[in-house]
Structure formats: C-alpha cells, structure tokens
Design a binder for these strands. Structure first.
Lengths: 337, 337
DNA sequence: CTTGGCACTCGGGAACACAGAGTGCCAGAC
DNA sequence: GTCTGGCACTCTGTGTTCCCGAGTGCCAAG
C-alpha cells in the first residue's frame, strides 16, 4: 500500500513543489532526484498516490501538486525538523538578549520570527493562568476613584480604574491593600477567586462595599485575561506569497484576536510543536494557509504559544526548526529574568 | 489661467475617476455632468489642465486621470468636507461610549475608523507630553528589584522593572515613594526632569544610589515616550484597492512605527485636518497612497493624532468628514473621563 | 471662444495556431 | 510481478493577428 519508493516520490514532489512553486512532473522528478527508475515507473506511483489523495493535478496533463493530506504525511513521516545554522542561532541569541521588558521580549520575538521565516509571525503574550500574584497595588486617584494594579511573577501588569461607591481615605485603602497582598501574595491566579471569597467577611461592615467593588474588578480582570493579547508581525511577507484563497481573508483573520488564539492554542499539550495544514484549519478564511506553532515557557510551566502562518506551500522542515528554536530561546530568556 | 469652467472640469474628472476607477474622457464627462458645452470644448480645457500638470493620460488616446497635483487642488479648493449622516454619527457615539479604558478607547476608535472609511486606520496613543503625573508607584518585587509605575492623568501607565544597586527594605522604598509623589504629583511630564533634579541631595547619603537608579529609569521612560505607540486596523481593506505601487511596500510601511508617526504627525498644528497626497509623502514606499489625519484631544491641549491611509484615488470629502468626526468624538470622550 | 468634423492612435479582446510538458496505457523485457 | 520505452492524447500558455471602439488633436467654420 505504501511502499518506500512511493513515499520517496511524495517527498520529492513536496520538496520540488515547495521550491519551484510549479506542478512537478514525472520527468523533472527523476532528473532532480536520483531515484534510479524511469519516468514511467514514477508515473505509475503517482497515479497511486493520487488515488490515495496525497497529490492532485490542477488540470489534466499538468504535473502533480501535494494535497493537504500529502503535506500532512510529509510532515509526520517524511521530514525531519531542520536545525538552524550556527549563525542564525547566534543572531537569535544576541537579538533576544537585548530585551529589557516583557513587552520588549514579545516585540523582539515576533519580529525575529517574521524575519527568520519570512512569514507572518504570531506571538501570544505569556498567559496569566500559570503565573502567580506578585503584588497588588491600589492607587487612589481621587476620592471616588482608584487604580487597581495587579503584577504577576511573569512581569505582566494588569491595571484598571475603579469607580468607588463612596469616598475613601488613604488609610482605608492602605488597609485593604495590605489585606489583599497578605491574602494573595504568591498564589496562583487560578486560585485567586477562592482566596478572596471570604475577604469581605473579615472586614468591618463599612468597608465591605468598597472591598466588594474592588474584588469584582479583580475577578473580572482575571476572566478577561482569557482573551490574551497577541502580537503579529511580517504581514508584508504575505504580499510575495500567492495565496490560492484571497489575500483579503487572510488579512481579516489576522485582525481577529480570537481566530488567532484558536489557531495557536487549540491543543491539549501546550508545549508541542504543532502544524496545522490548510483545510485542517477551523477557520474557512484560512484554507490555503498553514500554521506552525510551539509553546514557550520554562520547563514545566508552559506560558503561551507562538508561531508563524504562511501558505500551505511552505518549507515545513525549515519553518518548524525556526519556530522551535525561537520558542526555546524565548523560554530561556524568560526563565532567566 | 484658471477660469471657472476648467476648475469645474477638474472637479468632475476627480469625482468620476474616484467613483469609476477608469480614465475619464471628454464625452463621458459632458454626459454625466451637465456642463453645457460640447466635448470638443472640454477637450481644449483638458489639454490646458494637462499642460499645467493637474491631469495626465495613462497612454495616448485614453481618458485623463488626476495627478497628485490635481488631487491637491481638488482638496484645497474644489471640495468641501462631507459631514456624516445622522445614522453614522449615532453609531460612532454609541460605539465609543462603551469604552471602559484608555486602551479600549484607542482600540475601538481605530476599528471604527477603519470600518467607516473602509481603509486602513491609524491611531496614535495619547501623547504624554501635555499630560501630568497622577501617581508614581514603587513596588518591591524582591530585595534587589522593584517595579516602577508611572500613572498619568490621561490614564496611561508606564511600567518598568528596576534592578537595584543594593538591597533595600520596604521602609526605604516607602519613603522614596512618598518623596517622589510629593515632588511630582500633578506636575507636567515635561517639567519632571527639573523637579527631580535636586531630589538626591535632599536624601540621606545611603539612599542616594538607590534614588539615582530609580530616577534614571524614570527619566529614561520619559524620553522613550517619544516613540509613541500606534495602533492600526483595517489592513484587509488594502486587498481590495489596487495600488499602483506594490502592496508589499505599503504593508511594510505599516509595520514601521516611525514611518507612521511621521505620516500622522509631521505638522506644526496638531489639531489641523491634514491631507498628504501621493508623492507629497516623504516615504517612497507610500507613493500612491494618501493620508488623511487629524489631531484629537480636548480643546486647548491636543493629545495626539489619528487618521487613515488609502490609495491616492480616494473619496477625499467623505474620508475627511469621517476622520474629522471621529477625532471630535474621541476628544469628547476623553475630555469626559 | 465654441463647435462639429475628421483622421489618427492605441489598448484590449477575440480568434487562432502551435509548441511543450505531461499523462495514461500497452506491450515487451528482466 | 515489476519496470521500461513508446505512443497517442490532452491540456495550458504564449505569441500572432486582427479589429473594434474610445478617445484624442487639429482645423476650419460659426
């Protein structure tokens, strides 16, 4: 059913098609790869591969083109991730090492990835889920308003302005701040709701409305972290690639945070290097594009995901290598800081 | 030299070309606009307009197309900004009114503008120049590290992690925090450097290295505010428009914050509604595109600028109306909060 | 200054032919 | 059984030619 030569043929077709962007025929195939058999034999193999759905011809009497299923087999069994060159690795390292800030890390990463792969890069901000509270700050802005700031151990900051039910003075705010910090310091974000549940009861009655207001904002900001921030770069790289599907759809998808989130994240294993090819993609506007994504974060606790998006006809080994390498370096940087 | 009818002809050419996207000829012109003269007369006028550089023909025996100079004259003297419809105004109002946050305001604004004009919208975050310090916060992260947070009256937050020269305790940090706030509260960002200049001298000697470190970070963050953040939306709208110049260049320009800043901002009068047409543009990659921009901010103190970017062949009256209207509404929203 | 007439130009589309690449199939060789 | 060479067939893409129509510029007359 799938003997070795047929697989070799499929691999050759994918490689040639990716590099030339033209349907590849039997004759060209035996010339470029030394398969040791004649074109006619290859033709027979190709007929079988086509029947099985791994390749297709755009029209009669044209060469063959890999289908999504063909790419899938190629990625799963016929290729191996190509490691970066030493020069590239050094470039990554020095480029990322200069980052001063979590924002800076993310920005640099996304640019780096776009440049490295010459595709559209997408980086998700480190998620708060697995991070812990480092500090909660309440800053009075005026009598009826204060700013609530939540700082996590990943360097992420969530801030929010709170309108208060009634006037408060600095002392009450300070008290509440101290209580909140005592209660939450170092605890995981997911356990915050439990921790603060009984907080109002431990306060004097007159402070309870204030506490309730602030807590509701706190909890709300925890929920909202779900729709994480995402940064993209390298949209210009879309201009070169010729998409089978309209460019417009792709650009539209890139502006939909939710779509991007799902593309990057819809996997049980955050850390895995995942590839989603063309129609495997849930979003119809992105048929014709593939996504290569990986998780990043230090060791046990995965923080978030990053990846690139490009035409189905992409160089998977190289792209996967770049994505994996960048993910690793970012993890390293984040772990060190 | 420029009699009325020639101007009317130019206006008609611009309007027709914008709506049809095809070179417009003398015959079509007299049919669609009742100019009361014959095609031959129009031809004479067009010959003069061409000689003066307001219009051009793509090739012999084709209709005429406005040049950048022609659009310029049209915008300056032949058109008037078209106000939005009542429905549009209501939509803007309700859409912006829902914003909860400075980030939210900016995000909603940029989306709104993109949708309204069907072009690429660009919004600059409110600049800090004219804003004042509302609060400075120092949050110890551990012994050798603290987070520095600067909150302004526009709701903007700058945060930064500071590595300390030596270990500090909470008391010293609290003291410094109090001093900083006493010193800076309510003062304009531009005057911050003066205000803090003598601060170290007023501290006990052992606190001076700490203070110096923090102040240097503070001042640095003030300088960095120069390269303001910019948000864009509606890149998908580029797909429809056919650019004379490559789409790639435009997409590249959109990723260059600096370029965008210059496009929006290079004007002495922040509040003016400015139009930059095609080659008037400093950036070569954006020949073929025009920018319509306006300042926003409440009354006397202009905060920043926003605008849209589209093909030179755009409906200037409508676009200008939309940009102006959005700028006004945003100003309103910001003033209220 | 305007107008109608007229010759001229040029781009774009339709029709057509043709070369080239590629296929499928079949009969014969190993 | 599997591979191979040969052969007829089918497309696409390209180049050529031709022609129509829109549009122009110019000129002489109103």
């Amino acid at each position: 059913m799938v003997d070795d030569r047929k697989l070799a043929v499929l691999r050759a077709i994918v490689e040639d098609y990716v590099s030339t962007n033209e349907p590849v025929g039997s004759k060209a195939l035996v010339e470029r790869h030394n398969l040791g058999v004649s074109p006619a034999t290859i033709r027979n193999d190709m007929a079988v591969l086509e029947e099985q759905g791994y390749i297709a011809q755009p029209h009669t009497s044209a060469g063959r083109v890999p289908t999504d299923k063909g790419y899938r087999l190629f990625v799963d069994r016929l290729s191996q991730v190509k490691p970066l060159s030493g020069a590239e690795r050094r470039a990554i390292e020095s480029f990322l090492a200069g980052a001063v800030d979590i924002d800076d890390v993310v920005t640099r990463t996304v640019r780096l990835l776009a440049q490295l792969t010459r595709q559209v890069a997408v980086v998700q901000y480190p998620t708060l889920t697995s991070s812990t509270v480092r500090h909660v700050e309440l800053v009075p802005l005026n009598e009826r308003r204060l700013m609530f700031v939540l700082i996590t151990n990943t360097g992420r900051v969530e801030q929010r302005v709170v309108e208060l039910p009634d006037a408060v003075d600095e002392a009450r705010v300070a008290h509440l701040r101290a209580m909140l910090n005592a209660c939450l310091d170092g605890c995981g974000l997911t356990s915050v709701p439990d921790k603060v549940a009984d907080l109002p009861e431990r306060l004097p009655a007159e402070d309870r409305p204030l506490a309730a207001t602030i807590l509701s904002v706190l909890l709300e900001s925890l929920v909202e972290r779900q729709d994480e921030k995402i940064v993209i770069s390298g949209a210009a790289n879309l201009a070169g690639a010729d998409f089978t599907v309209g460019l417009r759809d792709v650009l539209e998808a890139l502006e939909e945070q939710v779509v991007l989130m799902r593309l990057l994240g819809e996997t049980s294993d955050l850390s895995a290097l995942t590839v989603r090819i063309g129609s495997e993609n849930p979003y119809t506007g992105l048929r014709g594009t593939s996504i290569v994504a990986a998780g990043y974060g230090s060791g046990d606790k995965q923080l978030a995901r990053l990846g690139v998006l490009g035409p189905t006809r992409m160089d998977y080994p190289v792209t996967m290598g770049a994505v994996r390498a960048v993910a690793r370096y970012v993890s390293q940087i984040l772990a060190a800081s």
